[in-house]
Every structure is written in C-alpha cells, then in structure tokens.
Amino acid sequence: MYCIQSAATISHQPSFASIGFSSRLSKDIGSLIKPDYKDFVPPALIRRMSEILRMSVACSNLVLKDAGIKQPDAIITGTGLGCLYDTEKFLNNAITIEGGLLPPTSFIQSTHNTIAGQISLVLGNHQYNMTHTQNSLSFEHALLDAMLMLDEDNGNILIGSADEVIDPLLPIAAYFKLNHFPLTSGASFYVISKNKNEKTLAVIEACHTSAFYSSLENEIKDFLSKTGEQQIDFILNDGCNKDVSRLIEALLPGKCIINYSEICGLYATNSAFALHLATDIICNKTKQVYDRTINSHQRALIINSLLPERAGFIMIKSNEA
C-alpha cells in the first residue's frame, strides 16, 4: 500500500495550499499562481533560485509540514526538461562572454538533479537522493522508484516533479505539434508512506510505464486486467491525442473522462498535477470539474500518453475504498 500523506502543487491553477481546489478551477489557463516564496524558502537561498527551484522547495516544505515530518527517508524527483531557465542563462553567457570567465551559479543550477539537490540542502538531508528524467514519463518513474523503496522498507518518501517553460520552447513545441494546450510550468510534491493513518489523503494502487509499445490498447488492457477496470469512477487523461481519447472511450465506455492538460497546460511532468487533482477530487468528493460530472469518488485512473509510444498509468483510490 502506498499512502499519499500530503500533496502540494504550484501551477497555473489555484492549487497551492488550497484544499478542494478541484472545485475552484479557472476555465482559462492564466499566469503561474505563486505563493510568497519567502514563507517557504530560506531568504539567503531564494535569490539564487530560478522559478523551478522555488516552486519545488516551496512545495517540498509544505508537504513535509502537512505530513508532520522533519526529514524524509528519501528525496526522489522527476523532471522532463530540467532547469531550463539556468540552462538558457548559462548558454547565453557562454556565447556572449567569448573566452572569458563564466558565472558559476547558472552552470551549477542548470543540471536536472539541482531540484532534488536544493531540497536536500535546504533540509540538511543526507538520505537517498535521486532524479529521474525520462521526458514525459519522468514523474511515473520517480513514483515507481518510491514504490520500490517502500516495498523494501517503511519510511516517508518525499517525491515530486517539476518543469518550467522558457520562451525558446514555444517554437520547438509547435514543430513537434505539441501546441494543443499552452505550455506552462508546474511542480507537484507528495509525501508517501506504507502505513495508512489519519493524515492519509488517498492510496496509490499501481503505477506502470511503457515505452515503444506496439499497441496502446494492449497496454491499457494489461494494466486494467491487473487492477480491475469495473471499479473505475473517473479517468484523468492528458488529452493531447484525439485517437488516444477515442480509444479510452471505447475501452471504458460511459466513464467520466477529464483532460488534465486542458486544466494545467502542457509540461513534461503534468501527470504529477493530475495525481494531485485526482487526490483532491477523491478527498473532497468534487462533483463537477469543468463540464464533467463525477458521481462516485472511490477510484481513478490517470493515463499519460503525452508523447507517442510512451505511456504511463497510475491507479489511485480513496483511503476508504
């Protein structure tokens, strides 16, 4: 059993420190909705942090506080494209400062594992620290890592993912025809543990990823056969591929399907937002998300097929189920 003890998301929706946000979603994806980072990030460190780091450290601090934990037993993050702002800054410096010294901060903070590293530095944490980066499946792989750790031992694992948008991504996304939804930034973090208690928000039943599959239909059928399709109350689908949407409707007829990229926008790890949205819907028994009506709140399936030939599935259930 993998229990979600706390959850925090900074996104373009009012999701941060906002229980029941699934019933207050904005129809339009506006700007990133940020908290006052000074409440969550040490002032001496904040000035050096780019948005992706500020979001991640703020979310991490909130989930640890909500779960009543000072030090997690592991920090596991996923990021599709990493710290893009610092990467761009470093590369621009390399181009403009011909042969001169390069500023170190943007170089140090341009690597993908800066997120998990900064969280551990802020906490003074010396436990397992891992970063997964497999593009659109980065969050699912981080989650699988956490689940494997919990299979071996008890503990409280801080897990999450983050991605940020920078301007040069816009033409690249258009080239790859990833322009169905606006490109956005977001970070979602969770504390998960093996033991259910009064803080448990929901339970992750299973997570599965598949790359370079021959048939998405077979992948979905396999996952459902292991987890039981008849009990699914609602489905969160990335919604970027109409053929996939039609396939899900055919395989799971009559189910409530919510396209989560329509709500949070597009970034490589937006399935982590979907997990928080599903948790919030289940915990607060949200009846309406946009124009979709949810009648039962026991079990939800998250399908991530953001990129072709890559799929991630997460099954989540109510802690009462």
């Binding site: 001496a44 050096r48 400062i97 001169g100 010294l101 390069l102 170190p104 901060t105 140090i108």
Partner: peptide, 17 residues
C-alpha cells in the same frame, strides 16, 4: 551582506567582465 563562497566566484567573474 551575507555573501558566501559561490558569490566570491561570481565577484571574480564580475571583475573580469
């Protein structure tokens, strides 16, 4: 100002730049 060792590296770059 409370600067640290990474800032010291940044100051070296500042002098050069």
């Amino acid at each position: 100002l409370g600067l640290d060792s990474i800032d010291a590296l940044e100051l070296i770059v500042l002098l050069d730049k």
